[in-house]
């Protein structure tokens, strides 16, 4: 093999090595860029979530509620926590079968019941009806009509996947039971209690509530909340 030929093939090997090195470097940088894109995407998600929260306005609780729990009725010794979503069909069924038993327990002075009107099912309507309806019920609580309004919302429950009741429908339900058109309407239209609904929804998730309806009697979840099961749990507490 001539000297020139040897040089040529040596140069070829070096070129190949350089090319491989360039490829390796490029793959490395492209991979780093891809990871950076994913990290940035995640940060954007967190930022979007934060801004959604802070855009909603200040957190204020309605009458008979706290910033982390729903409207409370009665003052009996046993604490009952209900977790309901106004668009959830099973919650309507639950209210139909067990609602009066709970009201009786309140009237008998046996329990104190908290209606945590959570918005777990906002994607189940096209207008975030879960949040709007729970916020409207909070406005009704300020007017002293929570339970009446709550029952009316279940009586007129919209189907899942629909737009739900409009704000003006929500207002007319309230004025129909004697709530002040001006202040009640303003409370709903301004979305005063939307941040509060988000807050009690968070609190429910934090407490481990994964679905609605959930019934908790003295910190014990009632797996199948029939009227009998609830009364039995209250008597045992």
């Amino acid at each position: 093999m001539s000297k020139r030929r040897q040089d040529k093939s040596a140069a070829k090997v070096v070129r190949k090595q350089l090319a491989a090195e360039r490829r390796r470097k490029r793959t490395l940088w492209v991979s780093i860029a891809a990871v950076a894109i994913l990290v940035i995407a995640g940060l954007i998600g967190w930022g979007v979530y934060q801004s959604q929260r802070s855009d909603a306005g200040p957190l204020v609780a309605p009458a008979s509620a706290t910033t982390t729990s729903g409207e409370t009725l009665g003052n009996g010794p046993v604490q009952v926590q209900l977790y309901e979503d106004f668009i959830c069909p099973h919650c309507k069924d639950f209210e139909a079968t067990s609602g009066s038993a709970i009201t009786d327990l309140v009237n008998d002075g046996k329990i104190k019941v908290t209606y945590n009107t959570v918005a777990y099912l906002d994607p189940a309507s096209t207008t975030e009806y879960s949040t709007r309806s729970a916020a409207a019920a909070a406005c009704a609580a300020d007017g002293g009509k929570f339970k009446e309004y709550h029952d009316a919302l279940y009586a007129q429950q919209p189907a899942e996947g629909s737009a739900g009741l409009s704000n003006s429908q929500l207002i007319s339900i309230g004025t129909g039971m004697g709530l002040n058109q001006g202040s009640f309407g303003q409370c709903i239209d301004s979305g005063r209690y939307k941040p509060w609904v988000a807050s009690i929804t968070d609190a429910a998730a934090k407490a481990g509530v994964t679905g609605t309806p959930t019934v908790v009697v003295n910190n014990q979840v009632i797996p199948n909340p029939t009227p009998d099961a609830i009364v039995a749990a209250v008597n045992a507490a």
Binding site: L38, A41, G42, L43, I44, G45, W46, Y49
Partner: peptide
């Protein structure tokens, strides 16, 4: 829960980016 909220908000965006 506080950590779950961060992951939950970030995850859909990471999935879309992937």
């Amino acid at each position: 829960f506080e950590v779950a909220k961060v992951i939950g908000a970030a995850l859909p965006f990471v999935e879309i980016a992937l």
